[in-house]
């Protein structure tokens, strides 16, 4: 029973072999115009996206001295072991995760609060101006605005401390102390990003089903109760998108660090992307790319989680 079946199968497979390939070629030929349209985009993505990523991951398995030469020595997981054994990396990773968690929660809750306020009738008249003010930091060049913040946090003549003292509040140590430097970055990046998340929430709020809210109101539900049970569930698309963008951008926080704190003081803001960058500067390419790869995997995993949340069936 065994052998006839097998021969029949393999004979069949042999006969079918040219079929799929021909069908493929035909399909590609039929849609050659679409392939031509995709070509420039695909070429850019391959050359300046996937190739560098592959190269970078490859380098993470090579020895530092030979990493960039044609005859690289592969050392397996040595760089990853070294990076994970490095106490400063573990510190840097926990800082990055703490910073991301704090920033995501702060940005999204402030953005949601602002969007709820702006969507109501009370602030209608000034809404254009308010949105403009919140969104301006999103589009202006970060290098410039972060430099402005760096000087505004200056201890001698910065506007932040001058304003605090004129209100009778204690001074803010800014970038001179570990804790305050961390908080300063959270605040500056909040200023930079929150407008984006706010307008995404606002757009979602405008698409809400008003009849549900009306029905709940009829049943005597208060505003807070309606926000919690009627609005928030309907805001799931915006929550998912915002968390996704926020996770990706805060995990990779870099410009603010290089401009404002340079990882200091005393490594208090030495986030993974910046730490890896300094390793690059020291020509420790293997370690730097190993760190980048670890960060990449974390971003991918968290992105997947958020994606699952947004696709989850609604049990309500």
């Amino acid at each position: 029973m065994q052998s006839p079946m097998l021969t029949a199968n393999s004979a069949n497979a042999g006969a079918l072999q040219p079929g799929p390939v021909m069908a493929w070629m035909l399909l590609i030929w039929q849609h050659r115009v679409l392939y031509l349209m995709l070509l420039p985009f695909a070429a850019l993505t391959l050359t300046f996206g996937l190739w560098p990523i592959a190269l970078s991951i490859l380098v993470s398995f090579t020895e530092n001295q030979t990493a960039l030469s044609d005859a690289a020595t592969y050392v397996g997981l040595e760089n990853f072991q070294a990076v994970i054994a490095d106490p400063e990396f573990r510190h840097s990773l926990s800082l990055t995760l703490l910073y991301t968690a704090l920033s995501v929660v702060l940005n999204l809750s402030l953005a949601l609060a602002l969007a709820l306020a702006l969507s109501g009738p009370t602030l209608k008249r000034g809404a254009t101006f308010y949105k403009l003010a919140l969104f301006m930091p999103v589009v202006t060049p970060e290098v410039a605005t972060f430099i402005v913040w760096k000087w505004m946090l200056n201890q001698d003549f910065g506007a932040v401390n001058a304003a605090l003292s004129s209100l009778g509040l204690p001074a803010f140590a800014g970038t001179t102390k570990a804790d305050s430097a961390f908080i300063a970055l959270v605040i500056v990046e909040l200023w930079h990003h929150v407008g984006f998340y706010t307008v995404v929430f606002l757009t979602n709020l405008q698409l809400l089903d008003a009849s549900l809210d009306e029905a709940a109101r009829m049943d005597g539900a208060g505003r807070a109760r309606r926000i919690w049970s009627i609005w928030i569930p309907q805001l799931r698309p915006a929550i998912a998108i915002n968390s996704l963008y926020a996770l990706i951008s805060f995990l990779k926080t870099f410009t603010a660090v290089i401009v404002i704190t340079k990882g200091g003081p005393n490594f208090a803001t030495n986030f993974v992307s910046y730490y890896a960058y300094t390793k690059f500067d020291l020509a420790q390419y293997g370690k730097a790319t190993a760190m980048a790869t670890i960060l990449f995997v974390i971003v991918l995993a968290l992105t997947l989680l958020v994606h699952l949340y947004s696709e989850r069936k609604d049990y309500r």
């Binding site: 493929w24 985009f41 993505t45 391959l46 190269l55 960039l68 993974v272 790319t289």
Partner: peptide
Amino acid sequence: HLPGFKFVQFGFLLTMMYPAMLLVIPVYLV
């Protein structure tokens, strides 16, 4: 769903997630 199309789309989204500051160095090599 044409052959290769999903690959391009997925590859593009992947580049979005790689830490840009570290992509730049291999881009230098490229």
